[in-house]
Design a protein around this nucleic acid. Structure first.
Lengths: 147, 147
DNA sequence: GGAAATTAAATTGTACACAATTAAATATGC
DNA sequence: GCATATTTAATTGTGTACAATTTAATTTCC
């Protein structure tokens, strides 16, 4: 066995396992709101930036239209948002929150604190902020954007 | 906008983005071997532990049979491994590498170094080992296993 | 030793991811 | 001003993820 290929030495697998574990930990909380984890991410962007285009959502979340289009259709079917061709550029599709979608932000506001508790980050704000920044830098590197 | 809900402050999104970026960065290297990233992870386990059961693979990779069964069938169809009911317990399915599957380890041996170069980890072994350990601890926490 | 509980995979159904292609709208260059 | 290139979404097809159910084999417990 090549030592370099040991699973437990792979940063990539540590990332993959942590990311999926985190998503799983969110699931019970998001389930109460009727959301999946990627749907929650889309709403996080829209609560900051209502009316964002599919392209803008994709840039923030690093997702393409092949993922976003069906996801947005499901959120539209759930009544949380509406999709609209922009009048000044018919190629663009703008995504606007409905009142229900806007109102959901209040319920979601409790989630971050609940999760910090869940993964033992309470009282370790500095440590988890550092981890977050390290991951953000790594993402920029992997995306080929000079950091 | 609730400040706590800002996308760029979410550890969960930093993880999600980094994990997918890492998988994307592996893709060109794995593509040459005809593998997807999860398939590569399965092979990492088998190169360490040939003959592992589906359950054992699932425990190492945190995946269930719903994911593994079709993935293993594809690797079997590609001629890299064979699945066999264990004779001492017919519930268990053992996964054994073919000669082709075993031989692939040599080609894969170049991947870790190529990737370290790719994400700027050269000469920063300590830093990336620390990140890996932090992520492994976080995963254990999220999986509810006392760390 | 046989019913009930447990375990291991497979199956079913839904929802991402993402590469590759298509289609429509806008921008560009000559 | 018009052909060409670019941009933006949608579509198509493959491969995960994962919850929930099913099936078959083994344990457990009386």
């Amino acid at each position: 066995m090549t030592p370099e290929l040991q699973l437990d030495r792979q940063l990539c697998f540590a990332l993959y396992a942590a990311s999926r574990s985190m998503t799983q930990a969110y699931q019970p909380l998001l389930g109460e709101l009727g959301l999946t984890y990627p749907q929650y991410l889309v709403l996080l962007v829209l609560w900051e930036q209502d009316g964002a285009s599919v392209k803008q959502l994709g840039e923030r979340l690093l997702l393409d239209s092949g993922t976003l289009t069906p996801l947005l259709k499901r959120l539209e079917a759930a009544g949380l948002l509406r999709r609209r061709r922009a009048s000044d550029d018919e190629r663009r599709v703008e995504v606007w929150l409905s009142d229900t979608g806007k109102a959901l932000e209040e319920k979601a506001a409790a989630i971050p604190q609940a999760m910090r508790c869940r993964y033992g980050a309470e009282g370790r704000e500095a440590e988890s902020a550092l981890l977050r920044q390290t991951l953000q830098q790594l993402t920029m590197l992997l995306q080929g954007k000079p950091g």
